[in-house]
Structures are given as C-alpha cells and as structure tokens.
Design a protein around this nucleic acid. Structure first.
Length: 285
DNA sequence: TCGGGCAAGGGTTTGACGTA
DNA sequence: TACGTCAAACCCTTGCCCGA
C-alpha cells in the first residue's frame, strides 16, 4: 500500500546562487522533459519553431511557433513534440526576484496565479506577444554573449517580461480555476512508485490496485493526467534507464534488458528501436 | 461527478527460429 | 552474441452504461 504523503520527487536543477537562471535552446524534447516531472524553479518556454503540446497538472496545451509557456514551481508537467520542435527554455529561481516583490507584489502573479488569473499558454496571436518574444530573445543573446553587466540586463529583462504579462495577459472575467482532477495526487503516487520500482513486472491490474481503482478507470485517469497510457509510460521509464546503463556501463545488452524489466530480448530490441530510433548496440558505437 | 463493470477490438508480448 | 521476423496468445484501451 502507498504511503499517503508520497509524491513525485522534485527534479534538482543546479543553478548558481549568484546567478540563478539558465537559458538554453532544445531541439525536440529531451528525455528529462518527456517524463512527468516537477521542479521548484519557474520555467518559461518560447516555441521557436514547430509544434507539440504540454500536459501541465492534467491539462493539455497544444502549442505552435511563437507561443510562450509558463510553468509554475512544482507544477507537474511533461512535453511532447509533434513536428520539428525547437524551444527556448528558461529556468530561474523565483527567490532571485524576492526584493522586487517589495515594490511590485504582483510581479510573480503570472506564475503564482496561473490557472486562475493567467493561462499557462500565452498565445502567439496576442497583440503583445511580440514584445515578450523580443525580451526573451534579448535575454538569450545576453546569456550567450556574457558581456559586461549581462547579469543585470537579464534580470531587468526578466522583470520587464513578468510586468508585461501582468499588464497584457490577465484572463478576462471571473477568475478561472484549474481542472479539478481529484485523482491527480493518486496518479502522482503511482508514478512515483513506478519510477522507484521500474524493474517490477507491472500489470495494469497491479497499478490500478495501488490507486484503489478499477483497471479501466485507472487507465482513463492516468492518460488524462500523464498524457500517455500507463504501460506506454512504463516502457519510456524502462528505456530511459536502459539508455543510462548502456551509456555508463559495459553490461551485456541482455543484462540491461533484464535489469530494466524487459522479460524478452526481442521485445526490448523492438521497443528500443521504436522509441530511441536506433538499436541498443548502435547506441554504444 | 466519480467509479465499477463489461465487451470488443486492437495492440503488445512471448517464444521459436533464422541470419549476420 | 545481437538482432530481426512471425504467429499465437494475452491483456490493455476505449466506450458505454449504470449506480452511488
């Protein structure tokens, strides 16, 4: 039986305390973004090119070129690529802006009030989006060039970015509430359990038992919250573990396959090629 | 609104066998 | 040893209905 207080552990993002922000550009969706995860840092994604969608706290947000995604601290999220995706990813420690909140208490509202007064998705068609895109591009340029006083410029641009969201992107009408998925904590606990016991021979029935749900109800809820079926998610967890072992050890492929919970080598090879795009032996070359 | 039960269809897994 | 193919068995997903 699961302990009630268990939930998915936060990812640890190593940001230097003196400059707690990281700006990168990613092509496609890296394995760490494909899995359901959360972190204390606030995250901004600018869709530079292509399409895909985010699952954030059980809500699906399709995105396209020009959209901006905001992810608050500890929001459970997962990214998917549909086509030719390139994203700018900004992670920052909200504590970095603690002083500014003395002067503008609403500065972090676009994150803190997401789902109520703001949406996770800032639409590429919004009249003010170009201003925000320019700010983010400027931040990336400053980060890459690291010229004199670039830390101050990036910090100032981040404050400007948040202020403009406050000014132009408040949702109209009554406060909106996030989708009430009562099962979200239950699914969190099951996902945590799967990640900690990835090699177990899980069946849908086992997983549903952990959640105290029928298999059909569990499968439906899981897909709503995580974005893929339970068994598909389990395969991705196992393959991530397999990639790690293949890259960092000299274990035989059949040993890796067994350790990662695959009971059959041919099935492991087939799934590996399907998800990773190459065979296990090709990965090692 | 949430959850259980059921059935149909389709996807997945397994194990044997072949090839390089 | 590593990996691909294939057929059969298995079981998961989905949709629907019903009750609490």
């Amino acid at each position: 039986m699961l302990k009630h207080h268990q939930s998915i552990k936060s990812d640890t993002i190593h940001l230097p305390p003196s400059f707690p922000i990281r700006i990168t550009e990613t092509s496609g969706v890296s394995p760490s973004f494909q899995r359901l995860h959360l972190h204390v840092e606030m995250e901004i994604n600018l869709i530079v090119k292509g399409t895909g969608y985010y699952i954030i706290n059980g809500n699906k947000y399709p995105f396209r070129q020009g959209d901006i995604i905001l992810i608050n601290s500890n929001e459970l999220h997962r990214a998917f690529e549909t086509e030719d995706l390139i994203m700018m990813v900004i992670m920052f420690d909200p504590g970095w802006l603690a002083v500014e909140q003395r002067y503008d208490a609403e500065l972090l509202a676009p994150f803190r009030k997401v789902g109520e007064r703001f949406s996770n998705l800032l639409d590429a068609n919004h009249e003010a989006i170009t201003t925000l895109q320019n700010i983010l591009n400027d931040m990336k340029r400053e980060f890459d060039q690291a010229s004199d006083s670039y830390v101050s410029v990036i910090r100032a641009q981040l404050i400007r970015f948040l202020a403009y969201i406050n000014r132009y992107f408040k949702l109209p009408g009554a406060p909106r509430h996030q989708a009430k998925l009562q099962g979200i904590e239950t699914i969190r606990e099951v996902v945590q359990h799967m990640e900690e016991h990835v090699t177990e021979a899980w069946t849908l029935q086992n997983l549903a038992n952990l959640a105290h749900l029928s298999p059909s109800r569990f499968s439906y809820l899981f897909s709503q919250i995580v974005g893929t079926s339970p068994m598909d998610y389990l395969i991705q967890l196992r393959l991530s573990h397999a990639v790690h072992l293949l890259e960092t050890t000299e274990m035989k492929i059949i040993e890796v396959s067994t350790i990662c919970g695959f009971r059959n080598l041919s099935n492991f090879n087939r799934l590996f090629r399907l998800y990773i795009g190459k065979s296990p032996s090709e990965l090692r070359k």
